[in-house]
Design a binder for these strands. Sequence first.
DNA 1: TTTGCTTAGTGAAACGGTTCGATTGGAGCC
DNA 2: GGCTCCAATCGAACCGTTTCACTAAGCAAA
Lengths: 335, 335
Amino acid sequence: MATIRDVARRAGVAISTVSLALNGKGPISPATVERIQAVAAQMGYMPSVMAQSLKRGHNRLIGLVLGDIGNPFFGRLLRNVDSVVAEADHMLIVADTASHPEREINTLNQLRRHRVGGIIMAPLSNDPAFAAYLREIDVPVVLIDQYVDGVRLDYVCSDNELTTTMLTEYLIRLGHRRICYLGGQPNWWTARLRLAGFRAAMQASGVNIDPDLEVVADFDGEKAYDQVARLLSRPKRPTAIVAASNLMALGALQAINDLGFSCPGDVSLTGVDDVPWGSVIKPRITTVVQPVEELAQVAAAWILERIGSRGGAAAPPRTHVAIPRLVIGESCSRV
Amino acid sequence: MATIRDVARRAGVAISTVSLALNGKGPISPATVERIQAVAAQMGYMPSVMAQSLKRGHNRLIGLVLGDIGNPFFGRLLRNVDSVVAEADHMLIVADTASHPEREINTLNQLRRHRVGGIIMAPLSNDPAFAAYLREIDVPVVLIDQYVDGVRLDYVCSDNELTTTMLTEYLIRLGHRRICYLGGQPNWWTARLRLAGFRAAMQASGVNIDPDLEVVADFDGEKAYDQVARLLSRPKRPTAIVAASNLMALGALQAINDLGFSCPGDVSLTGVDDVPWGSVIKPRITTVVQPVEELAQVAAAWILERIGSRGGAAAPPRTHVAIPRLVIGESCSRV
DNA sequence: TTTGCTTAGTGAAACGGTTCGATTGGAGCC
DNA sequence: GGCTCCAATCGAACCGTTTCACTAAGCAAA
């Protein structure tokens, strides 16, 4: 690939003249500018972002660290983040930690070696060592979806507590009392909040929580299937299920069907978040959807802000809580 | 962030000594190496990949250009590509063209400015101008999923013709004759091949193709819904449907249900590719799935090879055709 | 003619590393 | 003591760009 030297030689001017001309900076005569542009175009010259960055002290790269890009939620997140940062002429280095929390520090270090201007991350880890690492990090970081206890960083999420509260209240209004809750691993930030949302709604309505019906299924479809199958084969089975994720809701639905029960006839079912093509799953599951576009846009805008104002990196951290939306399907019935 | 200069000063040695010591190259005394390592660790020094790359002439970045990362197929592709290149200490710059073919050249140019070592791309465009651009490109490119006429580049795909051939033959074996084909836009490479696969299977079995039943639904769920709804309300309706994508299959299923028909009772349905939650969609759709992991791994391995052997970039282009797998569900019945 | 002001363009330093030829200082040998 | 040799370390060039102080030329005013 041609370098600025080649262009300068070919155009018969100094290197600095080429730089000035192509960036439209110095007082270069129109004739010269035109000649240089012509030569550059003809040679297919493109400035090396690496070299530019080295000089300027910052490149136009942003790191995006996710636990599982295969998950459609993160896929949509990625897409929307990309569209915003591309607008600002930035590009995304995407790293998937493949659901291994222990790889996160390593991944972040790699991004730092690349001197990315900022990092957007949906963390998995939530231990003090990781928090300590984040507290010392010297590049702007915006957390998304999941938080890390003990750090002070920008954080963008939807109101996780509200998600399950809305669903639980809805079921209670329909007359349900024996409600099963399918939750995630309690070391996940969002899992704890969604559980709290469920409990708050139950208590607010004065409904007793049967501890046996509050199960952990690790945000995993198969585990949800097993748990629901187990609970449905017991005498006092639940009349409704609140699943803290779409995957678990689908696992639950499959269990309900496979055991010969009907949804919503025998068991009402609700979940969190859209599933792509959810519209063709029968019955359509009543669900609370997170505004992914909003999350992505705010996170992207914030990281660009932090990058833009070098000093402003010290500005106090902000939190944006997006309000999820209840989408009523056909998976719940009055009891 | 500390630079190599800072480390050198603090350790009381020359810059070159630090570089040599940390890279384990020169004959540096063990005592000095240890001291330098200690100082570097204490200062949190990390070499700048940009600076290294500038000197070495190549960075450890690979571009991945996709039309829609929101699509789970590409999400899984991304995840698997990332896992392979990460193994080789490379990172991925991901760019989403948001289904705008006209942005592709721009995106590729941006990646070239970043001096990525190679590019993996699922192209949308397939016009001569784009082919001409690709023919001149000075960085290794591996195409995946879709090809571009008139270029000579590595290409990784699954046997697109075979996908629809397998489905069609399966339906014919079940006794179907009036088979509807839902295809994609003919300017898409994969759409043309899948259509050809359908026709080949029909002709091989001596079944007449009713041109009215061969419709274009643009790989789009809504369009498929409309088309199927239209065809099903006519007197001589099809007894089976081959959809050239999962999205169209789901649209078709919805239309079948909404019009009061049953699947597979009245209409048999088949599709191409997994849907992430396919296992809970009733009925489970018979489908041919592409081995995404295999595609991703081959593409990643090939681009790493091209990057590795600088001269080898001129090696003749290869093509890898993966064999898709027929997964029989409950959406088809004998007629 | 000298002075001063513009305009157009140049040269060199700097960014943060790597690499290689040059330079030490000391040990071993005669 | 002078020689060679080797291990350990250093210095400088270089990668591709930007930026800024500087110069050379042209011209108007004094």
